[in-house]
């Protein structure tokens, strides 16, 4: 159970890191380009908005698999 959680936590870390790195590439910040728009929102804004929501969601998932006080206290 503990190994499974650790593996899940590692996967979440990789996804979070990947999303952060993606933000700095032309995939999210193409120079001087604001299309395609989504509901009129410029490209870099809506893509980065989705990345922010994804990071917060990953944080939530992280709370389910990351170690907590209780587990720490029973460790030798």
């Amino acid at each position: 159970m503990k190994d499974k959680k650790l593996k899940q936590w590692r996967i979440l870390r990789l996804i979070a890191l990947g999303l952060c790195l993606l933000t700095f590439t032309p995939v999210v910040i193409p120079k001087g380009v604001f299309t395609p728009e989504l509901f009129g929102i410029p490209y870099s804004l809506w893509t980065s908005f989705l990345i922010t929501v994804a990071l917060v969601w990953l944080t939530y998932l992280g709370t389910k698999v990351h170690r907590t006080d209780e587990e720490e206290e029973v460790r030798p």
């Binding site: 979070a16 870099s44 980065s48 908005f49 990071l55 992280g62």
Partner: peptide, 19 residues
Amino acid sequence: VGAWIFLAVSDGAMVFFIL
């Protein structure tokens, strides 16, 4: 609009890091 990335995306990364 890049101001969103400057603060909001960075804050998203920060809260993940807090865990």
